[in-house]
Nucleic acid binder design. Sequence first.
DNA 1: TCGTAAAAGCAAATTCTTTGCGTTAATAGG
DNA 2: CCTATTAACGCAAAGAATTTGCTTTTACGA
Lengths: 185, 185
Amino acid sequence: MTVKENLRPGGRSARVQASVHKAVRELMAEMSRAEVTIPLIAGKAGVTPSTIYRRWGDLQELFADVAVDRLRPDMQPVDAGSGKADLEAWAEQYAEEMSSGPGREMIRDVLAAQAGANACKCAGFTRQQIGVIAERAKARGEVFPDVDRVMDQVVAPIMYRILFADVPDAARVRDLVARVMGATD
Amino acid sequence: MTVKENLRPGGRSARVQASVHKAVRELMAEMSRAEVTIPLIAGKAGVTPSTIYRRWGDLQELFADVAVDRLRPDMQPVDAGSGKADLEAWAEQYAEEMSSGPGREMIRDVLAAQAGANACKCAGFTRQQIGVIAERAKARGEVFPDVDRVMDQVVAPIMYRILFADVPDAARVRDLVARVMGATD
DNA sequence: TCGTAAAAGCAAATTCTTTGCGTTAATAGG
DNA sequence: CCTATTAACGCAAAGAATTTGCTTTTACGA
């Protein structure tokens, strides 16, 4: 049931994984999530259903695997001149991406999977992005809050709202950033 | 696919719902989640599978429905003498319950369902509990932070950690409470 | 009491999932 | 360079879950 982490780039396993992931992404784009089935994915990917069942176990694990891939940041946080501006820009984009339709579904896919590793990985991505902003701020000689505190006071509230309530708007995100940047202790 | 909200207490629908919920809870107690199937639940509940399929749609929606029921608080927050003590006691218990094995599974069940209403309802329960603590504090003449702020700075970080990372320990929870109670703005 | 509509039962058809076995392909050792 | 080994895949049949049309039951209101 476990998906191999380090596949040789040219190996057969890697090719299968790539074509299955691609098939999932394409099918998700053209139909609702509930209509996507493993036989359908297998057909589009050019593999047999049993291959998918054996490698991923079930649809949820496969979806989670694909979602983590798509949630991996594709670039470093933009440099907006100061730590606060960097964090503000990053947080606004994060909130927007994550609260979009596809964003919410990817998060749900990640959380729905039995293996907690995927969710941890996502939090790791986020933490790393904030780490970059923090390092940059410190290199400039600025004071910048601990990464853990930013996770607690900015990332967690955004994600909580997305998951359990409404979509956080830009003003609220700025407010969260202002609060964590304003704290002096 | 939608489950009726207000069922007549003695009606047939209410009886079916009760027996199905009971069957789900019992089966979850005696076997792993992946082994619980709709035909199994139907058998235990004394209904036919098609009844469940028609009322809930699929296993995830049914699980979410049961989970919301179980996440509903069964009592008011205990009075520990002061707003801070109340919040501390409540938050510690909340963190403990939610990060337990069954707690995590219930949260995942709620979030995995397509209908976002269940998740909202859970956040509503939490908000209401905090509201009680806030009212009590204000009745005592204490200053107490806004409920939204407590949600952002205490509840959200706890939930984020449970979902995406590790289990928050009591010290960290106390730290979150201390911070939100210390803020003066 | 009777009519009505919503919900449940039943059962057949369809679709998905599991599994045993043979085959293929990548890797390591000679 | 060639062969042994092993992990992964394809195939196909068996088993289980899901869907659906139709009938029957039940609660509620006229």
